[in-house]
């Protein structure tokens, strides 16, 4: 296997980096979902003509989201160092990388969730309104469940982007596979490490995509599927 071709010390390093990458990606993904989904809901629902119509508020959060999204990650990471220190108490290490990763990826997920929820037929919202549903009930029972396949697909895109961003976490001493590849593969002229890192990342991204596609299909009832005959 791959690890057998590498010296034991290197194999240990790779495992350590894998753990760091996993920590950064999983934690940032969870946080970005927790913050990004409500943000996406606000982006949709406060639009003119929607259930919580607030045009000014909508434009303000839309602008903030765009500002964050247009800032290159490497710059964002450095620019929000004071904020990072406020949150995790340090500006170095894996946890210090989680903060800028979350900040950078949340607006992306919010926009993807927003797009998915905007696709929900307005007739469904009207039907819920005609039943006397509150805006919150419409969000919880109509908007989010109906947009779930799109939201899950957006989640997959977000995860893959996160894995890419996490390679830059080395800048703040966050470690991870990308950092390992640069430090050993590039700076220490060990192309086999670089190769191992790239192969592992490809496998991870591929697995995330396959799982994400499967999950999106599993929650999608819009198209009739042929049921297995028992």
């Amino acid at each position: 296997m791959l690890f057998d071709l590498l010296p034991p010390a290197l194999a240990g390093l790779i495992l350590e980096s894998l753990k760091q990458t996993a920590t950064m990606v999983v934690v940032a993904a969870l946080l970005s979902t927790l913050i990004g989904l409500p943000l996406g809901i606000l982006l949709v629902a406060t639009e003119p003509g929607h259930i919580l119509e607030r045009p000014v508020f909508n434009r303000v959060i839309g602008t903030v989201v765009n500002l964050v999204r247009s800032t290159p990650f490497i710059i964002l990471m450095v620019a929000i160092i004071p904020f990072t220190r406020l949150i995790v108490g340090t500006t170095v290490g894996t946890w210090a990388a989680v903060v800028p990763l979350t900040v950078a990826i949340t607006p992306l997920f919010a926009r993807l969730a927003e797009a998915a929820m905007r696709e929900v037929d307005r007739g469904l919202i009207e039907a819920a309104e005609s039943m006397g549903a509150t805006p919150f009930q419409i969000i919880a029972k109509v908007l989010v469940p109906e947009a779930l396949p799109g939201i899950v697909a957006g989640q997959t895109v977000t995860l893959v982007s996160l894995i890419g961003y996490s390679a830059m976490a080395g800048t703040v001493g966050g470690g991870g596979l990308g950092d390992l590849g640069i430090r050993f593969g590039y700076q220490r002229f060990m192309p086999e490490v670089m190769l191992a890192v790239v192969v592992i990342l490809v496998v991870i991204v591929q697995s995330v995509q396959v799982l994400g596609d499967w999950a999106a299909r599993a929650v999608n009832h819009r198209i009739a599927r042929r049921r297995k005959l028992a």
């Binding site: 037929d121 007739g123 029972k141 469940p145």
Partner: peptide, 26 residues
């Protein structure tokens, strides 16, 4: 009650789930 030209059923819910929606809302 209201019924619509394009039915406006939730694709994410079964028939029973759709009929349950107004009851849940209430």
């Amino acid at each position: 009650g209201m019924i619509f030209q394009h039915f406006n059923l939730l694709s994410s819910r079964t028939v029973a789930g759709n009929v349950a929606l107004p009851l849940e809302v209430a």
